[in-house]
């Protein structure tokens, strides 16, 4: 009896498809858990798919005076988001051919490019709220960047490379690697960065309508129809990418396919989505148990993440990390 083996390019394409197709599901699960914690019934788990389908059918309008960049931005951003799954371990524990195209830093740059393109498109509209959102996103993005860099440095010192596949393998190798303070601190710092990047409490309310507190959510205000749908889909994909990075590289790099047969890869897809749902549940609990920080308190949140990351480096240098 022979098992059906997939070629690496097919697995690589499956990684991208998993992120693209699975992302709205995770968003739906988080919204549902959040609603249940608040004592509401909440929307269906599959609601984000319907929302996207609805937006794709609507007409699209562009503000007067915007150029082709405004219309191209959502697609460039989406292309960036779908490039990153090629670089990180989504389904397999071994590196796929394109996995060495870029390291964690490279993936970070691609995500930053996407966020930059969206910010520029928002700035082009002349709408005050969209501009406010993009300017805030860039301001606070600049202060979270050092945290991300320190997390990458930690990975680099631990594994002597900065390839996500290698760190995942290191974490799997023995329990010593899990309880070391550097690993725990770096994972916690990355988690805080993810809360920031996905626009969750305590940084901003994800579903709110108060424009003055918005950062990420304010940027696609002027897009409509399919363009808005692609932007929304992109931010969902970004969320799942960051979850995958945290789960499959730092916190829980188990349950990925070690071979190329179909069953293993399909199981990995299911397990990744299950792990992401659990992480989403945790984030929903945080969403419901904390208040949104005032805008100028965000620096304190980032300072805390910075503290965790820099302590990770310190303990490593002392030889005890």
């Amino acid at each position: 009896m022979t098992t059906l083996e997939l070629t690496p390019p097919v697995i690589q394409a499956t990684q991208v498809l998993t992120i693209a197709v699975g992302a709205p599901l995770i968003t739906g699960v988080i919204a549902r858990v959040e609603a249940m914690l608040q004592g509401r019934h909440g929307p269906r788990v599959l609601q984000p798919y319907s929302d996207l389908a609805k937006l794709f059918r609507k007409e699209s309008l562009a503000p007067r005076g915007t150029g082709p960049f405004f219309l191209a931005a959502p697609f460039v951003a989406m292309a960036c988001y779908l490039t990153v799954p090629l670089l990180i371990p989504v389904l397999t524990s071994y590196a796929l051919p394109l996995g060495f195209m870029g390291d964690i830093l490279g993936g970070g740059f691609v995500l930053a490019l996407a966020s930059f393109v969206v910010a520029v498109a928002a700035a082009e509209t002349g709408d005050s709220y969209a501009q406010l959102g993009s300017s805030r996103a860039k301001t606070f993005g600049a202060i979270t960047e050092p945290v991300v860099l320190l997390v990458v440095f930690t990975v680099a010192i631990v594994t002597a490379t900065d390839l996500p596949y290698v760190l995942g393998a290191t974490v799997r190798s023995s329990p010593d690697q899990i309880v070391r303070p550097a690993h725990l601190l770096a994972s916690a710092a990355l988690f805080m960065v993810i809360l920031f990047e996905t626009g969750r409490i305590p940084i901003e309310t994800h579903t709110g309508t108060t424009e003055l507190g918005m950062i990420e959510e304010a940027r696609p205000f002027e897009h409509s129809g399919p363009y808005f749908a692609v932007l929304k889909w992109g931010s969902m994909a970004k969320q799942l990418i960051l979850f995958t990075l945290l789960l499959n590289v730092f916190v829980a790099p188990w349950g990925m396919a070690a071979t190329r047969d179909v069953g293993g890869v399909l199981l990995a897809v299911v397990l990744l989505l299950a792990k992401s749902c659990v992480l989403g549940g945790v984030i929903a609990v945080i969403d419901d148990s904390f208040a949104k920080l005032r805008l100028f308190k965000i620096t304190e949140f980032v300072a805390a993440a910075f503290l965790l990351a820099i302590l990770a480096i310190f303990t490593l240098y002392l030889g005890g990390g």
């Binding site: 594994t159 002597a160 010593d176």
Partner: peptide, 26 residues
């Protein structure tokens, strides 16, 4: 592939607890 110079399990736990004390101070 293992990382460079990971401490033993006991050392890791002890260091982590020590770091938690420091974080509480912060």
């Amino acid at each position: 592939m293992t990382g460079t110079g990971a401490p033993t399990l006991f050392d890791g736990v002890a260091n982590t607890i020590a770091v938690v004390v420091l974080l509480l101070e912060f």
